[in-house]
Design a protein around this nucleic acid. Structure first.
Lengths: 355, 355
DNA sequence: CTGAAAGCGCTAACAG
DNA sequence: CTGTTAGCGCTTTCAG
C-alpha cells in the first residue's frame, strides 16, 4: 500500500521478453553504450563527468535497467556463480553448511546455485553439466554416501575447480572435511566418562570416508580407555532413520547388550531412538545414545539427543575459499577443519551407567 | 578402476579455461561452424550428408565438446532453467515438492535452479536477480510465511513468469496451492471421530494464506460436528519446533484443557510433542495430536505422529506446468490441487477419548 | 547440401 | 573525458 516513490517499492520489471538493454539506456541518456557500461559497473577508476554519470544513472533507474546475466557471462567467460551440490538438500544438517557457503560466497561476490544429486543418475553428469557447460565457475561437491571416492576421482578432470566436502580424492580434487576422527572420539569419550564399557557403534557405510574416520575416532577412544572395540559391536548402515532402527535391532541381539551407542549421524539416531521406544528400551536408563552431527531434530526428540556438533558452517566457508582459490590458480589442497573443534552438546539421551 | 573405453568412463573435461568451442570442432571435422551447430543440436529436420554428420559427431566426441551455456542463453534469449525458491530448503517437507518440480521440469527440457529466501533480504531482490537478470525463464516461488501476500503482489511485475505456491496474488501472479481447507478439515474430523470435543488448533501465522485456510477447514469440521471453535483454543505461531512448544504451553493453561490438538505443520508438531514429554503430558493418553503436513520426521517421533499428508509432489508438477505455460503466453491461473486429496495417516499420537 | 555473416548484450581496448 | 569497434560462443537466415 505504501508508495513513497522509492524505486524499491515499484513493481519488479522482470519479463525476459521486455528486458531493457544497455543501448536503450544509452539512447535515453544521450551517450554511448560503453559510457553506460563503465558507469553502471561502478568501476571507480574510470573518469566520467559528474553530469554524464548522473544522466546515465537516472536513465538506468527510470528504465529499470538490469544487466543481462548471459551476456556478461559470455563476455567474461565466467559466471560468478558457484555450485553447491549435495545428495539430499532437505537434510537438516546441511542448514549450517549452506549458510557457510552462502556467506563466504557473498563475501567474494559470488552467487550460489544449489543442486541435488540424483541417486539414479551418474554423479559425473552433474559435474559435466554445471562446470562443463560453464553454468558455474566452481563446484563444492558432497558425493553421495556410498559412492567410492576413488571411483569418483577417476571421473574428475583434475583441472576442474571442484572441492569435495566430507570426502577426498588425492591429486584429483581439493577437499575440505570436518574433524570426523575427533567427532567420533568425543562421542565415545563421553560415554566412557559416564562409566560405560560395553559401547557399540552404529556406524555409516564402510565406503564412506566420513564414516571410516568417525569409526577410527571411536576406536581410538575405546583403546585409550582400555576397552576393546569388538567387531560385533559395530554396524555399518546408511544415513536414514530407518537404518538407525535396523542398527538398534541388530545391536540389541547382543548378549550382554551394550549400554551405550555412538550413532554416526543424526537422522539415524532419531530413528534409532524411536525404535528404542518401540522396543521398550529406556533411554537413557537402559541405554545411552550419543550422535555425531547435530540439528534441530536432535533437540526435539524424547529424550533430547546428546550430540557432537560438527563444524559445518566453517566447512562451508572454507570450501568456498578453496574453490575460489582453485579458480584462480591450479593449487589443490586438502583441508581439515580442526580449529573450532567438534563440540559435545549434552542433552538427555546419555546418563551415567547405573549398576 | 574399470576402463572399458566408453566415453562415460573418461575424465570429465570441465575446466572453463580450456573449454572447447564449436569452431574447434568445425576445424577438426573440416567443416563450417554452422554445420556443426546444426548437427549437434540434433535438429531432425536438417539435411546433412551422412558422411559430414559422422565426421562432426566423432570430432565432437573426441574433443569432448560441451555447448556453452551462456552463449546459448544469450542467443536464444532464454535459459531453459526454472527457479524454485523457498524460504527454507532444508525443511523436510520440501522433499516431495522438489521432486515434483524436478520431474516435471525435466519432462519439458528444463533444468531447475534452487534458491533460498533470506529472511533479512527483501524477497523482491531474489526475483529481480533471477528473472530480471535473465538467469531463469520462470520462477516457482514460495514466499516466506509471514510476508503479506498482498504486499508481495504489489512488488511483482504482472508480466513476470512467476507462480506462487501456498499463497495467492490475484491478478499479479499465477498460483498453485494444496487443499489446505481439506487438510485442516481432515485433521479435525479425525479427532472428532475419536470422540474429542475440546479440540485446539495450534495454527500458523494469520498472515499466512496456508494457515488461514487450514484454520478455515478446522472450523468447518468443528461446526459440522456441532462444536464451537473457541478463539482461546487457537494459537497463531510460526513454523518451527520451538513455536510448537510455545503453543502447547499456552494451550495447557486452559481450564479445562483440550484433549486434542490439530497442529498446522510438522516441525511445530515435533516440537509440541517433545514439549508434551517435558511437561509430563501423556500422548495420546491425555492428549491426541494430529498434524497437517507429513515428513519422515513424523514417523520417527514417539509416539509417531498421526498426520495429514498434503499433495506436495502434485503441487510441484502443477506449478511447473503453470510457469511454463506462463512463459509462452500471458495466461494467469490460480489452481488448487484437489484431486489427489489430502490423506490421513494414522500413527500413534491420536487415540479415542477415554473418559 | 554447405558455408559466410550477422547479431544476441555486454565489456575492453583503442582512438578521438 | 567520450565514442567506435571487435568479439565472447552460439544459432540462424540467406547465398552459393
Amino acid at each position: 500500500m505504501s508508495a513513497d516513490g522509492g524505486p524499491a517499492d515499484e513493481p519488479v520489471r522482470a519479463s525476459a521478453t521486455a528486458a531493457v538493454t544497455l543501448s536503450e539506456v544509452a539512447a535515453r541518456a544521450g551517450v554511448s553504450v560503453s559510457a553506460v557500461s563503465k558507469v553502471l559497473r561502478g568501476n571507480a577508476a574510470i573518469r566520467v563527468s559528474p553530469d554524464t554519470r548522473q544522466r546515465i544513472l537516472t536513465a538506468a533507474e527510470e528504465l529499470r535497467y538490469r544487466p543481462n546475466f548471459a551476456a556478461r557471462a559470455l563476455q567474461a567467460a565466467r559466471t560468478q556463480v558457484l555450485g553447491l551440490v549435495v545428495p539430499d538438500l532437505t537434510n537438516a544438517l546441511f542448514t549450517e553448511l549452506m549458510h557457510g557457503v552462502e556467506d563466504e560466497a557473498a563475501a567474494h561476490g559470488y552467487t550460489v546455485l544449489l543442486g541435488r544429486l540424483d541417486t539414479d543418475r551418474p554423479q559425473t553428469e552433474v559435474i559435466a553439466r554445471l562446470l562443463g557447460e560453464g553454468r558455474v565457475d566452481g563446484l563444492v561437491l558432497q558425493a553421495t554416501d556410498g559412492v567410492d571416492p576413488a571411483a569418483l576421482a577417476q571421473l574428475l578432470d583434475p583441472r576442474a575447480a571442484v572441492v569435495l566436502i566430507n570426502s577426498v580424492a588425492p591429486g584429483r580434487a581439493s577437499s575440505v572435511t570436518v574433524d570426523d576422527v575427533g567427532g567420533g572420539r568425543t562421542a565415545t569419550e563421553h560415554l566412557v566418562e559416564l562409566g560405560h564399557t560395553r559401547i557399540a557403534l552404529a556406524g555409516g557405510l564402510p565406503t564412506s570416508y566420513t564414516a571410516q574416520r568417525r569409526r577410527r575416532g571411536h576406536q581410538q577412544a575405546m583403546r585409550a580407555a582400555g576397552l576393546d572395540p569388538r567387531a560385533d559391536h559395530e554396524t555399518a548402515l546408511g544415513y536414514t532413520a530407518d537404518q538407525g532402527r535396523q542398527a538398534l535391532r541388530a545391536l540389541m541381539q547382543l548378549d550382554p547388550r551394550p549400554t551405550g551407542i555412538v550413532v554416526a549421524n543424526v537422522n539415524a539416531a532419531v530413528g534409532l531412538l524411536a525404535e528404542a521406544h518401540a522396543l521398550g528400551i529406556d533411554v537413557p536408563g537402559d541405554l545411552s545414545v550419543v550422535t555425531v552431527l547435530d540439528s534441530w531434530t536432535a533437540e526435539n526428540t524424547w529424550p533430547p539427543l546428546t550430540a557432537v556438533r560438527m563444524q559445518f558452517y566453517a566447512m562451508g566457508r572454507t570450501a568456498v575459499t578453496s574453490v575460489i582459490r582453485r579458480i584462480g590458480d591450479a593449487t589443490m589442497t586438502d583441508e581439515v577443519i580442526l580449529d573450532p573443534a567438534p563440540v559435545l552438546v549434552v542433552r538427555g539421551s546419555t546418563a551415567s551407567l547405573s549398576p
